[in-house]
Amino acid sequence: MKPAPFAYHRPSTVDEAASMLAATEGKILAGGQSLIPIMSMRLAAPAALVDLNHVTGLADIDVSDTAVRIGALTRHGDLERNVAAYDANPLLRRAVQHVAHATIRNRGTTVGSLVHADPAAEMPAVLRLLGGSVEVVSTARGRRSIDAEAFFVGPLESALEPDEVAVSACFPHPPAGSGSAWLEIARRHGDYGLVGVGALVVLDSDSSGERGGVPDQRGGHPGARRRHRRLQRRGVRRGGLGGRQDARGRGHRPRG
């Protein structure tokens, strides 16, 4: 369980990282909680690693009036513990608490999890549910923002080009008067969920609307879907969801 030989690069700026990535056809190393085990089992053998950990300014959590923006080096644990982010959007903490265990969350990055695009992972589903985006940088094409809808292409496959560095992710705040929840079934606490459901409910004075994102069953299971799916319903009457399943939904029936 030792990786095959690889070159190691340690840029100090984003631009430097992007040019190294383009030059080496390597992989970005941020938290390494998925990449390093895969390399150690020799399931992947990138020729080079470009280590972002010495690039400054990528670990910030910026809570604005409209969104929570996190950098490529924001650890899951930092997001989990950030009070301003929780106050603005409680769903972020509720979901990120289900990502593996504390030690992994202390090292693993949320943006890294988005880029890894595991259909059983929590934070890609949250990004889709909230209609967020990922900002990427390349030497050839500069900076661009990719909407969540377009970002997740398939299991372990994102719209990120091989020469692009994901530098941040933006989670828009839910509308005023909304509530959210995250539920998940896993065999063991902290495992990838067999089924997970994130829900966002928006209430107003005369009608209510609901949006729900469903991270898929683990890849490889019969009937597994390729991507997280987002269900959207409008005009649901108060109390009208109890015990019912959407015609397309296969998820666990809501409890309580």
Binding site: H101, R187, R188, H189, G190, D191
Partner: peptide, 8 residues
């Protein structure tokens, strides 16, 4: 291999 954690 599902060795239980302390949580299980």
């Amino acid at each position: 291999f599902l060795m239980p954690y302390a949580s299980e």
